[in-house]
Design a protein around this nucleic acid. Structure first.
Length: 150
DNA sequence: GCCAACGTTGGC
DNA sequence: GCCAACGTTGGC
């Protein structure tokens, strides 16, 4: 089992939205490195949910992968903002996963705290200028995060 | 709102 | 294949 981190702008889709919905399809990823990580996700994998682009960016909760490695339907939809004219159902370019809500942390872990706690080599999130929206989390780091979130 | 850090695009 | 221009992400 692998641990992952997914970024989301809470004004677009927050952990509270996921709690309300129960499950959601994680679509719209249009970066190849992020897509390649999406393809490695397996049902049962743990997902840390990160709120970006706000006053205090932070890891705010936990989700779990329930379905993985399928074509992102938005790439075929001309009305979607994520439409990709070069993608076809026979040769999809982009992948999605489906995740389910697990919990909201009683103690969110702010980016500033994570930067103080982890090196960029341990957690890609704290690397300066990092823009990756899907990334793996090392098991040791995942354990620390879980411990500090309660 | 600013700007650093990228990723992508397209001319050559 | 190089690289300048441009667009986007996301912290601050």
């Amino acid at each position: 089992m692998t641990d992952w981190l997914l970024k989301s702008e809470p004004q677009t889709y927050s952990i509270h939205d996921l709690e309300r919905d129960g499950t959601t399809v994680w679509d719209g990823v249009r970066n190849y490195q992020a897509r390649n990580f999406l393809r490695q996700m397996q049902p049962g994998d743990r997902v840390f949910f990160y709120h970006s682009n706000i006053t205090t960016p932070a890891i705010v909760g936990l989700a779990r992968v329930i379905r993985s490695n399928f074509a992102d339907p938005t790439q075929f939809d001309p009305n979607s903002a994520y439409f990709d004219p070069k993608a076809t159902p026979e040769a999809p370019r982009w992948n999605a996963v489906e995740v389910e809500f697990v919990k909201i942390f009683s103690q969110p872990l702010s980016l500033s705290r994570l930067k103080a706690q982890f090196e960029a080599t341990e957690l890609l999130l704290v690397r300066p200028g990092n823009r990756l929206s899907v990334m793996p989390v090392a098991e040791k780091v995942a354990r620390e995060i879980l411990k500090n979130s309660e």
